[in-house]
Structure formats: structure tokens, C-alpha cells
């Protein structure tokens, strides 16, 4: 399980099959057939009648997205984003460089095993909060979307594009994070410390970075931008919503430490990566220009905190700003962004 557990084999997660019509049951098929046989006589043209004139759909138009099933759109977003993603590893430095359209936006060095061992003490001290947080931990095994919905008051039908934007952000973040996890190949807390004893199964992927942190902070980046952009403000209290979203992202990440699955430095690496993925999605959507690029050098004695993360570059915590990464727009993401934005427009 884990956030990416919801991706299933296709990598489309909740999108798989979404929007597709159901397979009919045999009785219905028989019924349809009987009806067709019985009524078709009224629509039969005499022989030699020419077909009536018919129109074509627009060629290669984002507007057509409306007509495709949800999972098809998801597949398109995924291909569109991933074609621009690139990465390479440096075996000697044990680091990975992740880039977009030829520009590096994230560099991560694998921490030493002693760095992780140093972190064990912090992980154990979080275990006392299991009594408080178990309900949240268990309902955030997959994507924690209802928690974001709670803060923004989102509803399934009127906010379906916003929910699609949230889900695609989560799916993309998970894919990017898996690449980093695979190369970093870092062991989980329960393998390094016998007394960690997680309260949920440890997922079968590396510890560093945390995918939950990546997803949560990517969603936070996208939603906070969306909230901030509405003019006049959809919400009377946009600043508070933004702070709650960020605080929620922190809490989602920390739950995984409380559960015994992640080190605080996993959250650090995930949060930095997630922020960048969120910013790249915003750039693809034409909402902003690009992502801030960072390098992260884990510090074993330090915990993860939103207040420190929000500072951006943060030398004592090992977070270094390395530049920026620009990204071009894509009409697919622009379409989704526009649709989602309208959901916050009272006059639509």
C-alpha cells in the first residue's frame, strides 16, 4: 500500500476505468437486441438514398478532452508530463539529478546509513502519537483527498475538475517519486531499528524520499496557487485556507513517521520534490513559469517541520537553492486548469 499503492498496475490509479461505461449484463444485451429488431423498421431508408451530411470533430483540439473518459485524459496528462521528465544518476556520488525539458530541478544525494540510524531516535519519539493519529494514518493509506476537500469544501460533482487536478497531481508526483526511490534504494525504519514496529505494513519501495510527502506538498502547491489566484476571492479567507492546506500537507507527511514507515529526512526530500512537481504542473497549465530548483543534503539529527520547509533555501537543514527550471505550457493541462479555475468562479 502507500500513496502510490492506489496507482495499481496501469499507473493510472483511481483513473483506471473512470468515466468508462459499464459492461452490460447479458439480460440487458438480449433486451437491447430484441428492441433493435422490433423497432428498426421505422428507420430503414429506401435503397439508393444518399447519407445525410455529417460533421467532423476538431482535429487535435484540447476541447475534445471533454468527450474522453476520465482515464483517457489521465493517460494523456501522464504521457504529456513524463515525456519532458528526465533523470540521471551519479554512481560515485550516489546522487540523482531530476530534470524537466533539459533543466535540472532537483538533486538528491543518498544519505549514509548512519544518518538514517541517527534519525531512528526521532522516529521512536513520534510513536507516542499513534494513539492520537491512528484514524488519520489508516484513512491516508491511499491519496488523502477527503482531507483537502474538507478544507476547501469541495464536492464531487461541482468540483470534478478540481478533483481531477488534485488526482493527476498525486499520480504524477508518485511516478516522479518512484524514480528517486528506486535509485536511492534506502532502507525503511523498521529494518534499521527493531523497536520501530510500524502499525501498518511497510510498502515495498524505498524509504527516501517519502511519496506521501511528495504528493501532499505537490497538491498543496497547486491548490494554494489556485486559491491565491481567484479574484475576487472565491473564499473570503483565502490566506487561512492556504495555511491550513500547508499545515495539512505537513501533517500527512508526519503521520508516516508516526506510523513507523518514514524518517523525517524522507519527508524533507519528498516535500522538496513535491513542491517542484506542483510548480511544474502549474507551469504546464500556463499558470506560472516554472519550478524553483533545489539540492538536498540530509541532516540526520534534524526533524521535519513545515516552518523550516517554508523558508525555501535552508542551509542548517541541508536545503540549497540551485536555480530555476522553466517549463512550456501544454494545452491539455491548460484545459484542465481553466475548467478547475471556473469551479471557483461564482458567476459561471
Amino acid at each position: 500500500m502507500g500513496g502510490v499503492g492506489s496507482l495499481n498496475y496501469t499507473g493510472l490509479g483511481a483513473f483506471l476505468g473512470a468515466g468508462a461505461d459499464p459492461v452490460f449484463d447479458p439480460l440487458l444485451v438480449q433486451g437491447l437486441q430484441a428492441s433493435a429488431q422490433a423497432i428498426s423498421h421505422v428507420a430503414i431508408d429506401p435503397p439508393g438514398t444518399p447519407p445525410p451530411p455529417a460533421k467532423e470533430m476538431s482535429f487535435s483540439s484540447p476541447g475534445n478532452l471533454e468527450c474522453w473518459a476520465d482515464w483517457v485524459r489521465a493517460s494523456l496528462y501522464l504521457s504529456d508530463f513524463m515525456q519532458s521528465l528526465e533523470w540521471r544518476t551519479d554512481k560515485r556520488a550516489r546522487s540523482i539529478m531530476i530534470g524537466f525539458e533539459g533543466q535540472e530541478f532537483f538533486r538528491l544525494r543518498r544519505p549514509s546509513i548512519t544518518t538514517f540510524q541517527e534519525q531512528l531516535k526521532i522516529v521512536r519519539s513520534y510513536a507516542d502519537q499513534r494513539v492520537d493519529r491512528t484514524a488519520e494514518i489508516l484513512t491516508q493509506l491511499g491519496f488523502p483527498t477527503p482531507y483537502f476537500m474538507m478544507i476547501l469544501g469541495l464536492q464531487t460533482a461541482p468540483n470534478r475538475h478540481t478533483l481531477e487536478l488534485i488526482t493527476v497531481t498525486q499520480v504524477l508526483s508518485a511516478h516522479v517519486c518512484m524514480i528517486a526511490k528506486h535509485h536511492m534504494a534506502c532502507r525503511r525504519p523498521d529494518r534499521l531499528g527493531a523497536s520501530v514496529m510500524p502499525i501498518i505494513p511497510t510498502p515495498a519501495h524505498g524509504s527516501f524520499p517519502s511519496a506521501h510527502a511528495t504528493e501532499a506538498f505537490a497538491v498543496a502547491e497547486v491548490l494554494n496557487f489556485m486559491i491565491g489566484k481567484q479574484k475576487p476571492a472565491h473564499y473570503p479567507d483565502p490566506g487561512k485556507r492556504q495555511r491550513l492546506i500547508s499545515k495539512l500537507a505537513e501533517r500527512i507527511a508526519v503521520h508516516r513517521t508516526v506510523a513507523g514507515l518514514h524518517f523525517p529526512i524522507d519527508s524533507w526530500a519528498g516535500a522538496i520534490l513535491g513542491r517542484a512537481v506542483g510548480q511544474l504542473i502549474l507551469a504546464r497549465s500556463g499558470a506560472s513559469g516554472g519550478a524553483d530548483a533545489y539540492r538536498y543534503e540530509a541532516r540526520g539529527n534534524l526533524d521535519f517541520f513545515l516552518a523550516e520547509f517554508s523558508k525555501g533555501a535552508n542551509r542548517p537543514f541541508g536545503v540549497h537553492r540551485t536555480g530555476s527550471c522553466e517549463a512550456r505550457r501544454s494545452d491539455l493541462f491548460e484545459w484542465l486548469w481553466m475548467k478547475a479555475s471556473k469551479e471557483f468562479d461564482l458567476a459561471r
Binding site: 531516535k121 519519539s125 507516542d128 502519537q129 494513539v131 492520537d132 517541520f305 513545515l306 516552518a307
Partner: peptide, 23 residues
């Protein structure tokens, strides 16, 4: 959360998880 941490109120010398971290 930040206030208590910056104030040092969450650093317990006995290394017990501080009660202030609980709900």
C-alpha cells in the same frame, strides 16, 4: 507547533515524547 518548538518547550531532557505534541 512552531511556537512551542522554537521556544524549546518540546525538548524534554528525559527524552520522552512531550505531552504538548499530543492532541
Amino acid at each position: 507547533d512552531t511556537l512551542y518548538r522554537e521556544a524549546g518547550a518540546l525538548a524534554d531532557s528525559e527524552e520522552f515524547a512531550p505531552m504538548l505534541q499530543r492532541h
